[in-house]
Amino acid sequence: MTGVAGATVAVAATAATTAAGTTTTAAATAATTAAGTTTTTAATAAAAATAATNATNATNLHFGGVVFPGSNCEQDVVYALRFLGHEVSYVWHQDTDLAAYDAVVLPGGFSYGDYLRCGAVARFSPVMDAVSAYAHAGRPVIGICNGFQILTEAHLLPGALLRNFGLKFICESVPLRVEQSVCKWLDLAQGTVLRVPINHNEGNYFCDEATHERLEKNGQIVVRYCNPDGTRDAGGSAPNGAFDDIAGICNERGNVFGLMPHPERVCDGLAGPHATDGVPFFKVIASYVEEVRGA
């Protein structure tokens, strides 16, 4: 599990070939209309076009994907990032050197089984000291699901993830509203609605009033659960009972981002009408990396 990505080029090349002759506009339109048809070809083509664009135009990054014992979404996120044209290496939980990576991903899953509070054991893994130092240096870190839980346990993000309201595991695609934030990972107009799957038993975000005020004031709330039209119910729109419908937050500098939904599951256009809604979550971080490098 410590090999370096060898498939990056091949995947991107395949994507480019598949997309040959498809203009971006047509592909985007196809992705929209594919919502209602029996086939997913159009959506796949659109995703391939996205990947091709990323592979040729965007800066390709080298991601480090941390693997804790019990992580189970690391392959998914590695696949998605490679599909989008990036290079990814697995980082074993006992590794301590992250210098080689442009950005670090803490994937979803059940680190150490999560029999204790989620992420409570993982935060003591040797790699987490390195992640802390990396984050404090202003370099980009994203924690997805279990990764978000680990980031809060490690105090790299404020608050905590409680058991879902209703006490049941929830796996479903949910609408997310993009908020005005300082997050370096996402750059979409406030109010944009994306559909991304959630998949957790402990995704009920909670923080105290003072922290919440700070989050609001600093623009640290990145995405909120919402209704399909982007509105929010007075009684809350979060399927898991999250405080203030919070689905994802970042730190004050915006370089550390944690979210419960799984954008890596909707990057390659495989299934359903919103099968590429996860792409924006991994798109703009390249420009920030350039910025950090420049500084």
């Binding site: 997913t40 998914d76 696949y79 929830i170 796996c171 479903e172 998949n199 390659d268 299934a271």
Partner: peptide, 24 residues
Amino acid sequence: WRQYDHQVMNNTVVLPGSDAAVLR
């Protein structure tokens, strides 16, 4: 099936609730 992770591994083409599930 809302209580089951039916998408991990990124290969589920047809989700639960239809006649048969399809995996890539």
